[in-house]
Design a protein around this nucleic acid. Sequence first.
DNA 1: TGCAAATTTAGGGAATTACCTAAATATCTA
DNA 2: TAGATATTTAGGTAATTCCCTAAATTTGCA
Lengths: 101, 101
Amino acid sequence: MILLEVIKSLSNQTRLSILEWLKEPFAHFPAEELADYSPDLGVCVSDIAKKAGMSVPTVSVYLKTMLAANILIATRKDQWTYYKRNEQSIQELARHIKDNL
Amino acid sequence: MILLEVIKSLSNQTRLSILEWLKEPFAHFPAEELADYSPDLGVCVSDIAKKAGMSVPTVSVYLKTMLAANILIATRKDQWTYYKRNEQSIQELARHIKDNL
DNA sequence: TGCAAATTTAGGGAATTACCTAAATATCTA
DNA sequence: TAGATATTTAGGTAATTCCCTAAATTTGCA
């Protein structure tokens, strides 16, 4: 884990919020959009962009940044890319800060 | 704790390194400079700046940023300002990421 | 094949951050 | 009080980040 990369991927309010929204999708996204939601997949880019009130390209890049830091997991299915949290990496981050920072 | 503020204060390699150096001052600063070192106080600004290879003003601002985020503790003594880690806050950060992020 | 929907990639302006030097301030000491 | 040392504040340039629109790509489907 490259700590600086992970921290940078979280050093923006929108990206931090996305991570929180994905913790409980049903609490943050309209039910229609989650019609065929699965915890395996997560939420697609355009739904996240709508929630963030930002353009799809901006959010797409944000998600890729977090994916590169291994904080999110992406799955392409048909024409959608779904993102979910990487709970293991988030716990690893907490552990790393606790023990090594 | 304002998570974003804390994360931003750590989102720079130099600031991250400073936090690590302060974990074990004797492993990272010349013994002469630590002649009257005390864990209560920590290390002074100019010693940290020298170690970082950066100007004193830059490092002074960096340290203030981390102080504002409550990740460091500052003590003014005579004409020196000493900085040490705020271990409690660092553990609180780890806990916050573990439980709330 | 060809259109439609979702996403990604490119390109660019605005805002923020990085980091410097110079100047101002604080504090000790002669 | 004057000088020396440490730090902070101010001010500026360069690099990076933010976040947009336009264009290109991917994939499903008629």
